[in-house]
Design a protein around this nucleic acid. Structure first.
Lengths: 232, 232
DNA sequence: CGTGAATGTCTACGGCGTAGACCAATGTGT
DNA sequence: ACACATTGGTCTACGCCGTAGACATTCACG
């Protein structure tokens, strides 16, 4: 029963995942290659395979580590609004702290931690009065909202600079649009630059969601079969 | 001025992008490799480089083709609510029709078409009464909401089957959770299976958003500095 | 001490994106 | 009609990637 004994070179699954997460956080997901990782750990690429089934498994473990930091607010929380706020704020904090959360965009949301998050959200939505079908649909939207900022941290910076950073995609965008044709966009670009980190953006997101859910719960036919009305 | 003359082997940028898009739609983004693409077009891999700068550029062109299908509702639309509904419904339709929209999750949102979409959304938000700063933050959330379904089409199917499809990540999830511990999740799983395609899920998303925006616009201090109140 | 399991290494394979030299077809100017 | 430059496709090769399989070492325990 040799378990946690240090042997050979003290490589452990934990060390591997930690290193991978660090690499992903500071170099982007695509910076995580088994060979580079092995280099950082001063080990042969194949050594990693003693602690991780394959790269996909490694990425799953990284996701797990991230999502385990999410605080699933207890079910006893006073109102569903408060539970939702607390849960999502925690989720948002994790997303904000780790660029590696971009992993959640490409990987099935089915690890134990992910399931726990989903379960907590579904429970909250249930107590808000939504049925199972609606809750599932809402769940998808909510994760999208939370992950929104993760989708592109760099996008806006690139857009406002008229795309100098990457010489590759620079041409693709300078075809038909000049600065003047996008008044709102260019005026908004300034706002983005001094973006202090998005703390209030996150609050805005949550309140948008809570407000929307309240409205939806109060007027259930809205989300169901909408009146023929397309105006007013 | 030889322009649109057929020479050699009639490979064109359009044919390349079309084939790539088709491949991405039916095999996922990672199924798009220049070599495979070349095979499908009965051409050498390097031939593609005569029509596309590099892979990144190709992906940009694919995104462009997708986003050009989005109907930017005209600014004269009666209410901002209606314009938002129309614009987002169209966006959602594109997402639903093309699995390749997963590209939007990994690529800067800065192609001309993407900028046009963003501009239209910002204009709509402006007419709803939000200032530039809020609009930018909301924009991020909204695209997240719309792209939510794209984030994982396969996730739920995998989750409900207790993860049989992929032998790789199957283990990662069967550690601490058994079916009984996730009541809402497992009951919801059924709902997901007969998911007719998400038309009403999309409506739900839009109404959630509109309702949330209305609430936010009516009570602006909510999204700003929230009252100390954390209860009720 | 001996043995079997655990851990790291080496070598090698096929796939990827892509640089660079080459070459055939094409349309142009005289 | 003929040399010519341009266009579009091919070939070869490089360095990266994930990973299979055989091997070597080191440890835990009898």
């Amino acid at each position: 029963m040799a378990r946690d004994v240090k042997v050979h070179r003290g490589l452990t699954t934990e060390r591997v995942v930690d290193a991978a997460l660090r690499a992903a956080d500071e170099g982007g997901i695509e910076a995580v290659s088994l060979r580079r990782l092995a280099g950082a750990l001063e080990v042969t690429p194949m050594a990693i395979y003693r602690h991780v089934r394959n790269k996909s498994h490694l990425l799953d473990l990284m996701v797990e580590l991230l999502l385990d930091q999410v605080d699933l607010a207890p079910a006893e929380t006073a109102t569903w609004q408060d539970r939702l706020r607390r849960l999502l704020a925690s989720f948002q904090a994790v997303v904000a702290a780790h660029p590696a959360t971009a992993l959640l965009l490409s990987r099935p949301f089915v690890s134990p931690a992910a399931l726990r998050v989903s379960e907590a959200l579904l429970a909250t939505l249930h107590s808000a009065g939504f049925d199972a079908g609606q809750s599932v649909r809402l769940l998808q939207v909510i994760t999208g909202m939370v992950l929104g900022p993760a989708i592109n941290r760099a996008t806006w910076a690139a857009a406002s600079r008229n795309l100098p950073p990457d010489a590759d995609r620079q041409q693709a965008s300078t075809e038909g649009l000049s600065a003047g044709e996008l008044p709102y966009l260019s005026s908004a670009a300034d706002q983005v630059m001094d973006w202090s980190g998005g703390a209030d953006a996150n609050r805005l997101t949550i309140e948008l969601l809570v407000g929307g859910l309240e409205a939806l719960a109060a007027e259930p036919n809205r989300g169901g079969v909408p009146r023929t009305a397309s105006r007013e």
